[in-house]
């Protein structure tokens, strides 16, 4: 049994010891952030069922609240739906005619259909961005065949990409996060740009051609990005082109931003698409292949060196 003095001296040593441990954890977090994030995801995997259980009452309450609100504006909602239904009937006829025409043209051209991407849907469990990040945790992981780099969309458009995958959960970095950089295409001006998140609800557009500025209100789609070459090709998915992202808006002159189509503030049900790892990189062009210099060439191939 320790004396009172010894116990007091020992108690005084506890705080510096815990400070040392905390400092070591801080340094580890800065130097080996992926390792810490992996541990965090493992913990989230364990906690995921508890989170899902706790989310149930809130979800039911939200549904009841939505029902009550819908009941209060039943009349106006009915009128709006009738008008929308009439409009949609006209569009349905147009869509059917266009689909038939499209099928006919594809048949004439012997069109090779693209592979339909596989997708899984899941509920958002919780915010996984912290104070400075914009990310969500999805209740689907490696068990549902999700890979790092897969794209995540909600009902309206792109919201982010998968950055870490656990067995039951996966972390999706939203397009609004400061670390998010996505290549995009602009529909009307036919330009390309990089969409960079800055922590706000509207990511900025960067690196667009200075003689072809983005137009206010034009639609933004993803531009195809190949998976990285080498050994990492099997681990990371590329980004398919043509996915709807949002519309261009100028907050002030010379500062175009993208107003995302998807709900990046509070995403609920999210679909994660697996477009596969196959790249559409073409074969190497023969014209670009290096040829051995012919004997007795009249000019040196490299200036300053004999041919």
């Amino acid at each position: 049994m320790l004396s009172i003095q010894a116990r007091q001296a020992l108690a005084k040593l506890f705080l510096p010891f815990f400070f040392l441990l905390a400092s070591a954890f801080l340094v580890l977090g800065v130097a080996r952030r992926p390792l810490v994030d992996h541990v965090r995801l493992e913990i989230e995997d364990v906690l995921a069922p508890a989170y899902a259980l706790m989310a149930q009452p809130g979800e039911k309450l939200r549904h009841v609240w939505d029902d009550v609100r819908a009941f209060a504006r039943l009349g106006s909602e009915n009128v709006r739906l009738r008008q929308e239904n009439e409009k949609l009937r006209r569009w349905y006829d147009v869509a059917v005619a266009l689909a038939n025409e499209n099928a006919q043209l594809k048949a004439n051209l012997h069109w090779i259909p693209e592979n339909a991407p596989r997708f899984v849907s899941g509920h958002t469990i919780r915010d996984a961005g912290g104070l400075y990040g914009r990310a969500i945790l999805l209740a689907a992981g490696a068990g549902q065949d999700i890979h790092v780099g897969d794209v995540a969309l909600d009902a309206k458009g792109l919201i982010g990409r998968v950055t870490e995958v656990g067995s039951r959960t996966s972390r999706i970095l939203l397009v609004t996060d400061q670390a998010s950089r996505l290549p995009v295409m602009l529909e009307s001006s036919h330009g390309t740009a990089i969409m960079a998140g800055d922590g706000s609800a509207t990511p900025r557009l960067l690196f667009y051609a200075q003689n072809n500025h983005p137009l206010e209100g034009e639609r933004v789609f993803t531009s195809e990005q190949l998976p990285p070459a080498g050994e990492a090709a099997d681990e990371f998915s590329g980004l398919p082109g043509g996915l709807p992202v949002g519309v261009v808006h100028y907050v002030r002159a010379g500062e175009p931003v993208v107003v995302p189509d998807g709900d990046v503030e509070h995403p609920d049900i999210v679909r994660v698409f697996d477009y596969g790892h196959t790249s559409t990189q073409g074969p190497e062009a023969p014209g670009r292949m290096k040829r051995a210099p012919a004997a007795g060439a009249p000019f040196p191939l490299v200036p300053g060196r004999p041919g």
């Binding site: 815990f18 905390a22 965090r40």
Partner: peptide
Amino acid sequence: MPSWAVFLVGLEADLISFGPPGTILIALL
């Protein structure tokens, strides 16, 4: 609120939240 309990709470907060690792732990200590 002994120091080991503060450490435990800080570690839990840091591992559950997705902020810069170790900062809540050090702040609490």
